[in-house]
Design a binder for these strands. Sequence first.
DNA 1: CAGCTATATAGCTAAATGGTTATATTCTGT
DNA 2: ACAGAATATAACCATTTAGCTATATAGCTG
Lengths: 109, 109
Amino acid sequence: MDERLDAIFSALSDPTRRAILARLANGKATVAELADPFELSQPAISKHLKVLEQAGLIRSGREANSRPRILEPAALKTIADWVADYRRFWDESFDRLDDYLSKVQGYEK
Amino acid sequence: MDERLDAIFSALSDPTRRAILARLANGKATVAELADPFELSQPAISKHLKVLEQAGLIRSGREANSRPRILEPAALKTIADWVADYRRFWDESFDRLDDYLSKVQGYEK
DNA sequence: CAGCTATATAGCTAAATGGTTATATTCTGT
DNA sequence: ACAGAATATAACCATTTAGCTATATAGCTG
């Protein structure tokens, strides 16, 4: 599962790709539609889409002439699950937080 | 906030760095302690720590001869908040999920 | 202050990344 | 079958990254 996390986090580290995901949250979109907001060449967008697809964050369809993309929620859930393991560190409702904060003194911001 | 997300996701895309965070979830640790589980040189670990610190995921302290690291939960919360925006896509309790799944037909796995 | 310990920095290299332009592929419509 | 539209792939380039070894810095201890 480690390699899967590598690919997902790496895919998400690019703002263009996160913007593409945000767009796909509104429903499926063609490559041309996804490329529209950016000042990037079409191949650059195709590359980003390939990265997202290989990370499992999106899927490709086929519709007449175009190959629309849709969001693949499972990969995002993988990230949510990973980060949830650290939730106790910022969620005040956990008793351990105070302990933790007390240890934190003397660490430069 | 976009650059912040870039740095955090990018930092998390490396398994060594995620393992370092996991170790720090058990409390502060020195560089030597953090390096121990890995077959990497000490400078390599220092580099990883720098990446984590610049992403705001950890902080450095000073204790006698050593510079122990601690977890910085805020950056992880940033990720949790970001991914939470997509929660409706995998959480069955949201009505829209069915709509979404119906659209998904015909997309290759 | 000399030497040891802990860690950081410098300088190097190989591989990966993100962009480009040019070209290939696939489907639609005439 | 052909022309055009939508998208993918190839080949290239510059930058970043992750590792290494060698060396520098900071603090402790005799």
